[in-house]
């Protein structure tokens, strides 16, 4: 689902109950992360749930975009991941670094889910994606002749 469609649907929901059900549905529809990617290396530790995350630069695109896949053992967290992935979809490293995820989650009333003290893995996931984007950026700068 594209981010604007997602937001349009989400903002019609009247209370947390409906929003929660919506996130659960998003979570169920999240494209599966291949089983072999559920490794310790890809895990983002949370206190309450776990998130697995892979990031790669899609060089077939011009300019290259960041391809992100993720999964969690908790359905609601998977729903929140779906929101993140929609926000980051088909974005270049520069665009990713410029994306205001906090603002988006605040707009959705989900900012508490992103706090570092919540430790559901989501905050760590954003950190990891951003640092991947920053690394890709500095690598591409260096390779420019």
């Amino acid at each position: 689902m594209k981010l604007n469609e997602l937001l349009e649907e989400y903002e019609e929901l009247s209370d947390w109950g409906e929003q929660c059900d919506f996130l659960i549905d998003l979570g169920r529809d999240l494209p599966p992360l291949p089983e072999e990617d559920h490794t310790d290396c890809n895990i983002v530790h949370g206190c309450q749930s776990r998130v697995w995350l892979t990031t790669e630069l899609d060089a077939a695109m011009d300019p290259p975009t960041v391809k992100i896949q993720a999964d969690s053992d908790a359905l609601i967290v998977k729903g929140l991941i779906a929101v993140l992935l929609a926000a980051y979809a088909e974005k270049t490293p520069v665009d990713i670094l410029e994306t205001d995820i906090t603002g988006l989650f605040e707009r959705m009333g989900l900012h508490r889910q992103l706090s570092s003290s919540r430790r559901n893995g989501l905050y760590g996931m954003v950190e990891r994606i951003r640092s991947f984007a920053a690394r890709s950026l500095s690598a591409s700068v260096r390779t420019v002749p």
């Binding site: 947390w16 109950g17 929660c20 659960i24 309450q48 749930s49 053992d73 908790a74 359905l75 609601i76 967290v77 559901n120």
Partner: peptide
């Protein structure tokens, strides 16, 4: 998952 369960119980 306990996190999902806790959220549902909270509702």
């Amino acid at each position: 998952h306990p996190e999902d369960l806790a959220a549902m119980l909270d509702r």
